[in-house]
Design a protein around this nucleic acid. Structure first.
Lengths: 192, 192
DNA sequence: AGGATCATGTAACCGGTTACATGATTAC
DNA sequence: GTAATCATGTAACCGGTTACATGATCCT
């Protein structure tokens, strides 16, 4: 399962609590793999049951006790096996609710569809801004929760952000062109 | 649930069997929303239970009997409601196994990573070819299972294909640039 | 002879989401 | 005072995947 390998990958940089893992997900990997806290805790207990991680409890007086997880040798091996074993086929699941609605767009008024394309563009632009901020902080070296401070780690992290930005730019362009095509189509309809 | 609306959307073009729905999914909507047969049958029975579709059995001698589903007025209303009610936030789930591996790419040999990028490019190019074929057939007007033969239906179908092609082109470019950056990084490493 | 197509379903499993439960401390 | 942060979990639900079951006809 991918979630478990994502977690093992993070733990390969150092021991951490479940709560800490969640932060790393949110601040860096979530671009690529998202996880909820309940999922993380559930998965940690099965990882421990299978011997991929071990845990120790650290008592704290002012805060709740921490359960700190450490990756085992077996866990490291499993992670590296998974990493080296790229899947033969990369069938990315195609389920996009926005696209599904566009597919049936002929059943809506043209104005309504254009409004939705514009909303789409607005939100994608917004997300582009957020991404740029994340990237800036990262380049300044500020973000403590981006694991791996080595230059090579940063290169790969940059690759993931780069892909998000490139595809964002593309889908925005796509939506703009769709609006144009819709308007042209409409104009030709009225003439004929 | 999106699957049910996808099915209602297809049935709004005309009555169909579960098996027929599967074909429409595979030949056109699967770009945007995929479905398996077992899912379709399960969903059809709940749709019928809730009064969104009704069914009649058509006896056949040489083939198994057909259960033909027809969308009801309630079903049509529900579909149009859903279609008009675009979601406020389009948070597309970010879970991509390939990207997850790239994220941890610093733990692999450079050559290994490049090999994976090249495999990625190869497969995306292959898929681009398939898409173009689908598009050509569609433009010739050949594909019987693309629902809705009206010009306006075609326009929206074209939008979905267009998006797939544009994003494919972009991710291929992304992977090519990553390879270049990896090689440049490696060269600078050796010098220093 | 063997696989694809037509045609319908059931059951188990797996992983992601949401809700529930608890409770102190700190920052605005 | 109230929201966020720290910290850990459990339970139910929901939807997607995989496997199982059946069986005729058509194409190579």
């Amino acid at each position: 399962m991918s979630l478990s390998y994502a977690m093992l990958g993070i733990l390969s940089y150092g021991p951490m609590t479940g709560y800490g893992l969640k932060k790393v997900f949110d601040k860096s990997i979530s671009q690529v793999w998202a996880a909820s806290l309940s999922q993380i805790y559930r998965e940690l207990s099965t990882l421990e049951k299978n011997g991929y991680v071990s845990s120790t409890i650290q008592k704290q007086e002012d805060r709740p006790d921490k359960r700190i997880y450490t990756i085992t040798e077996i866990g490291k091996d499993a992670f590296l096996d998974w990493l080296g074993d790229f899947p033969e086929k990369l069938v990315f699941p195609q389920r996009d609710e926005f696209m599904l609605r566009i597919f049936f767009g002929s059943k809506l008024e043209k104005e309504e569809v254009i409004k939705q394309f514009e909303r789409f563009i607005f939100q994608k632009n917004q997300y582009m801004g957020i991404l740029s901020e994340i990237e800036d902080k990262f380049n300044e070296g500020g973000n403590e929760f981006v694991i791996g401070s080595a230059e090579k780690d940063k290169l790969f992290w940059h690759f993931t952000i780069k892909r998000s930005k490139m595809t964002l730019k593309t889908v925005i362009k796509w939506a703009e062109e769709c609006i144009k095509e819709l308007e042209q189509y409409d104009a030709s309809e009225i003439k004929s």
